[in-house]
Design a protein around this nucleic acid. Sequence first.
DNA 1: TATGAATGAGGGTTCATTCAT
DNA 2: GATGAATGAACCCTCATTCAT
Lengths: 204, 204, 204, 204
Amino acid sequence: MAIAGRTKQEVVSEYRCAEILSAARTVFATKGFADATVDDIAAAAGIAKGTIYLYFSSKRDIYLAALKQGLTELQERTRVSMAAATGIRAKLRAFVRTRLEYAETNRDFIRIYHSEFGNLTNAAACHGEFQQLYLKQAKTLETVLQNSVTTGELPSLRVDFAAFFIYDMVKGVMMQRLLEWSTGTMEEDIELLSQLMWKGLGAL
Amino acid sequence: MAIAGRTKQEVVSEYRCAEILSAARTVFATKGFADATVDDIAAAAGIAKGTIYLYFSSKRDIYLAALKQGLTELQERTRVSMAAATGIRAKLRAFVRTRLEYAETNRDFIRIYHSEFGNLTNAAACHGEFQQLYLKQAKTLETVLQNSVTTGELPSLRVDFAAFFIYDMVKGVMMQRLLEWSTGTMEEDIELLSQLMWKGLGAL
Amino acid sequence: MAIAGRTKQEVVSEYRCAEILSAARTVFATKGFADATVDDIAAAAGIAKGTIYLYFSSKRDIYLAALKQGLTELQERTRVSMAAATGIRAKLRAFVRTRLEYAETNRDFIRIYHSEFGNLTNAAACHGEFQQLYLKQAKTLETVLQNSVTTGELPSLRVDFAAFFIYDMVKGVMMQRLLEWSTGTMEEDIELLSQLMWKGLGAL
Amino acid sequence: MAIAGRTKQEVVSEYRCAEILSAARTVFATKGFADATVDDIAAAAGIAKGTIYLYFSSKRDIYLAALKQGLTELQERTRVSMAAATGIRAKLRAFVRTRLEYAETNRDFIRIYHSEFGNLTNAAACHGEFQQLYLKQAKTLETVLQNSVTTGELPSLRVDFAAFFIYDMVKGVMMQRLLEWSTGTMEEDIELLSQLMWKGLGAL
DNA sequence: TATGAATGAGGGTTCATTCAT
DNA sequence: GATGAATGAACCCTCATTCAT
């Protein structure tokens, strides 16, 4: 009696996955990967521990899935809002706004995001896996910048350096806001950061 | 037989501590806190595992000590070089140079530094402990900036935001260089970053 | 709609049982009892895991049923062929031939058979359950031997010892052939073993 | 302060190993490999679970060590007593006596021995590992038989078949005695088995 | 002081069994 | 009857910490 896709089977399965990932995000965000236990996640999801292994093959697998899911959504939103903006300056402002807003409503994910992308130097965790994800993010932005340089909208500059710079800046502000260290409103921070970037880019 | 302080007892004790911390830094930098074992550290230090507990009360204690030792040295060097520089622009350039150079020769410490300060949002580790260390760092820089504003050397700006911004930027470049993602020489990166900061500050 | 017995219900039910047992034999033979999973058996039988529990009450139950089924068939064939033979020597040769031939075409069952009857000393498995099965087998043979002693066809000998001896010898050759360690053809091994038994019996 | 070997360190270590192996033998003999837990072994040895892992790397490792230790001792005793006997018939009697006597005083080991060598067909456990041990045993005996054939003490016969035959026979009697199924005394069984073998060999 | 053997709590994962559909 | 998702007890192994020597 399938209507779209394969219903029920698939719907329920995806729902469970989502439930687990949601619980996992909360737990990982609170305790970090190492200190979180699969029991914690199961309890948070309101299911038995064994059930988790029907949907994910290992604790790390859950972690990765949670991270990738958020990352994908964040990147997609960013891509869409930047595409909708006209001119590089507006695009950058869209970049800042989208990400800061996303961080505001996805605090658990952002905590995990920072765990990984704030420390890409730990070779132990996963050999280069996260480094690659990060690089891929940066490359996308780099392309946008490069296009603007090509069209003459931006002066020639080290686009690789600029891309990292932009990511780090936004990441830093996300963290400040998450920790409630920022004294400004969201709009103020968006404005400030956009200004700062624009001026900063001029220096490269 | 005491010469200065309490000799021997103290000297040997401090030497052991230093040995352990040095070994610990390497191990923690390579494997991260969770994956490093006390056995690893003992082996790296060339002493017995039990001995470590004569000098440190727990694995976390070692970690903290290693982090604080490096942090103290880094902050002291930064303070001295900034004090030696004249004018806020020179001070900021000193800030950048000192830290990037320190990172170049203390890679193990920097890895640990990033582990913690790249992810201050993880409540599990130590409730606010590292957040306080970070804030203290930032406050020092904030004071310098504030002084410049007071003397009119800098226009009025949100010094709290500026301090975080500066820290994050330098941290970001440290990481890029550590991962060998930077395409420029150290001097080029120092120059670029200083320029960028200076322009950026103008936006705040 | 019942024709003979209780039709359909029973026929289908028995068919399922047989399917499951066949699958189980393969799996148990390959992996042993402990390493075989009910999932393995379900997959091999091409049915759902839960279905298995409609026909058997536990994993061990399946195992036992598989073992008993094969054992019953083996014993029946042995009985028939021995009954058809005339004279104790011919009966013993029939015993050997029937069993070695059965082993050749029921390798999975023989593996399970060896698992249990090669190690009757493991109290854990099932307290004496298999020991009783084994004893029952031996007793049958013992009776045949005793009859021959009574008729004077065989000299007086310790029939209990002899029965075990005969079982073990055949079991040993089965294993050698199963592992392809035997260098002879089936006929050669039957001949050799029969000779050996006959001579051996003379010593008892 | 070392006297012989390296004392203390080594002595204590070996003592612990022996303690663990002794406990393991009892547990494995009673419950079988799969049903025995490392906790069981630790409890039987009167030590903590973790301690076991200082001496053995895994549950299977303990099992293998226990098996190999007994096997080595059994083979060595067999070798010595056979070497001391003159003539192939006396050697075979020595073989039987040594092994049956060993089985009488090492019942736990014999149970484990039967678990493995009564069922060499289970590929799952350890790919050919035990099969090789068994083959090695048989080859030794094969050589002795071959020598007797060469010197003309025995007529030409299939020594490979004979070796397996002898092993299986003794193994079978060991099991009967272990299960207290044998109605004879040890001496009677030794006598009977020796006779049987001798006669049987004549048939090959 | 230095050692390293001993400890045992803790966690990831498996899988026989159940039960709602 | 048939299914397979859900369960949770059980188990192997790790490792921070202790303590007798």
